[in-house]
Amino acid sequence: MPRVRELEVFRLVLPYGRRSETLLVKLTDHGGMTGWGEALSPQPKTWSKLEETLAALIIGVDWEHPDAVPSGDPAVDMACWDLWTRMRGVPLAEAIGGTRTSLMATVRLSPDPSTESLVSRVNQQVCAGYGHVTLDVRPGWDVEPVRAVRAAYPALTLAVDCGNAYTEHGQLVALDSYGLEVIERPFAAGDVYAHAALQDQVTASVAVEVASTAELDDFLTVRAARVLLLRPTAFPSLSEARRAHDRAAAAGWDIQCAGGQGMGLARAATVAVASLPGCTLPCDVTQPPRQNQLVTPIVGANAGVIAVPLTQSGLGHDIDESRLRRMAKETFHS
């Protein structure tokens, strides 16, 4: 039975993209075993909550399962799962019900200065072994780039991620004529009926992203989509993410796991969740650049395939702790 004797939390500014933040949590039990977790773009009150209240909830308290720890924080929950599974000598993927040993991967490509440059980037990824490409589109950068890529690669499996940026259906219906597999996040996240109306008009599957099973139920009730974009770190716990997986799968939806940001731990948790039987679409963990990860082995795809670490316990990855301590902008220890 785990009993945590030390809690450490590290705040880092991500060295890429829009330089958002991530929190890493380290738990150490009385036998010296450690568990790690990560929370991306934490809420402003998260740091003070962890510092003021979490230590009292977790240090010196016996618990038999991660679900018994009332943290309400995804990084702490992930660290509890990592510690619990390491103590039992089982991989996290196996502990949560994963069945896959490897995953197909999609590669995500951001908007480009020109369609010619975009097609060249797609060519690089196809040559690297990817058979599934997700293009980020926005109003003003949508039909022309998709048309160009489809013309160059008639048989390539294509998806688009709209980033919740659209308010009208017209351009999205036009995109559907290019044989897309999935149209991800077309409208504002909570606009259930706009998603439902689009799904009625297109052949591609509409994908929605939620952060709770209650939100998912709203979409399921009106059949507003056919794909769940499941980002494990958006949920308060891995068990809640598993429940969302179960509900979507029971409804006949496909599921795509995504979680490429952070310093590697969130990506590792995404791979574990993506090994669940209902995660039928390629996994998205292609960002950030590999050199920005703090874990070994690096989490990523090789020739379009992601290995699920089933020979190591826990998350299956170790933290470069000396580098973490150099990079941390703020820490606390209890």
Results as ranks from 00 to 15, higher is better:
V119W: 07
G98K: 07
A95W: 05
L135P: 00
D142V: 03
S110I: 04
S110L: 11
G97K: 01
L135N: 02
T101D: 15
W141Q: 06
M78V: 15
A79W: 13
D136A: 13
P139R: 06
A95T: 06
R100K: 15
T101G: 15
Y130K: 06
L135T: 05
N123R: 15
Q125P: 01
S110A: 14
H132M: 05
P111E: 11
P74T: 13
P91C: 09
Y130C: 10
L92W: 02
P113C: 09
D142P: 01
V119F: 08
A128L: 12
S114A: 10
A105H: 10
Q125A: 11
A75R: 13
T134V: 14
G129S: 15
R88P: 02
R88L: 06
P91H: 10
G98A: 04
S102T: 12
L92Q: 03
P74K: 07
P139M: 04
L103H: 04
S117H: 14
W81D: 02
M87T: 08
A79F: 13
G129T: 12
A95P: 00
L103D: 01
V90A: 08
I96S: 03
G97C: 03
P113H: 10
S110N: 12
L118P: 03
L92I: 10
T101Q: 13
T115V: 15
G131L: 05
A128E: 13
A128Y: 09
Q124V: 06
G131I: 03
E94H: 05
W81K: 04
R86W: 01
V133E: 00
L83P: 08
L103P: 00
G89M: 05
T99L: 13
S117N: 11
M104V: 11
V107D: 06
P139C: 09
S114D: 00
H132V: 08
T115H: 12
D73L: 14
I96H: 07
A95G: 02
G89N: 09
R138W: 08
T85F: 07
T99V: 15
L103T: 10
A128H: 06
D77V: 10
C127A: 09
I96K: 01
A93M: 12
R108Y: 14
R100Q: 09
I96G: 02
G89I: 11
L92E: 12
G97F: 02
V133G: 04
G129M: 04
G140M: 06
R138C: 07
T106P: 00
E116F: 14
H132D: 14
D142Y: 04
R138I: 10
M104R: 12
T115Q: 12
V107C: 11
M87S: 15
S120Q: 15
A95E: 05
L83I: 09
C80H: 10
G97L: 00
G131E: 12
G72C: 07
Q124E: 15
R108Q: 12
R121P: 00
G140I: 09
V137F: 05
G98I: 10
I96P: 00
A79N: 03
